[in-house]
Computed example of a mutant assay.
Amino acid sequence: MYAQNWQRLLDQAGPGGGRSGMSLASAGPAGGASGELKHSAKPWSGAAGAAHALQRDTATAKTKLTSAHTGAQAGTAGLASMAALTSVLASWEKRLTAVHTECGALEPVLRETAWAQGEVDAGVKSALAQYSTPSGKGR
């Protein structure tokens, strides 16, 4: 279900899925790229923090929404507006639960990606270190 929603959003973004002006720094000199692919863990960690905050905030919002509706049915039995209100409440609870669940699943993946990038960088640096020539010595 979520993959279809993402595809719909990309389709709405237009040709190239909204990526028409994007390129990797390593893709060549177009746009003045340096030829080096640069990345950092910061965006991944920041996204994980945002997912965590959104998860927390949706839980808070759901609690407040449910609390605000407590007792609303008292004295309104049979009113069509109460049935509509109950339906809207259920719909919002479902949406907030879905966002809460998705963010809860996404946060650890984003944190793992940030960590894994650092590990790969350290591994590559270590592997390449054996080929560096110490000052004054040739290979």
Rank of each mutant, 00 (worst) to 15 (best):
G14V: 05
L106D: 06
S126Q: 15
C103E: 00
G78S: 05
L54T: 01
L106N: 06
V124L: 15
S91N: 11
Q73R: 12
H52P: 05
G49W: 02
S23I: 07
S126L: 15
S23F: 03
Q4Y: 08
T101V: 11
G136T: 03
A74I: 12
G123S: 14
S91W: 08
S87Y: 08
A122I: 07
Q130S: 15
N5A: 13
P134I: 04
T113P: 05
R8I: 01
E112Y: 12
S45K: 08
L96S: 09
G31Q: 01
E119T: 14
W115G: 13
A61S: 08
D57K: 07
A72Y: 14
L9R: 08
A116Q: 13
K64Y: 09
G118L: 04
A90P: 00
K38P: 00
A27F: 01
T58K: 02
G118Y: 01
A84P: 03
R56M: 12
A114H: 08
Q7L: 10
A27I: 03
H69S: 10
A48F: 02
V99T: 07
K137Y: 15
Q55K: 10
L54W: 02
A83I: 12
L79Y: 12
K42M: 02
D121Y: 05
G71E: 07
L54C: 08
R56E: 06
D57C: 04
K125P: 06
V120K: 10
T70A: 14
K64E: 15
T76G: 08
A41S: 03
R19E: 07
R111S: 12
P29E: 03
G16L: 04
A13Q: 02
A114P: 04
Q130E: 13
G14M: 01
S23W: 04
T133P: 11
V124F: 11
K42H: 05
C103N: 08
G17F: 01
Q55C: 10
D11G: 07
N5I: 11
E36R: 06
A129Y: 07
L89D: 09
A59R: 11
Q7A: 10
L54E: 01
A30W: 06
K62C: 09
A80G: 15
A83L: 11
A25C: 01
A84R: 10
Q117P: 00
G32W: 05
L65W: 00
E93R: 09
A83W: 13
A33V: 03
G14S: 01
L10Q: 08
E93V: 13
A68M: 07
G46R: 00
G14C: 02
A83E: 12
G49Y: 00
A122T: 13
V124G: 01
Q4H: 10
T86A: 09
K137D: 13
A114G: 14
A68C: 07
V88F: 14
Q12T: 03
L89T: 11
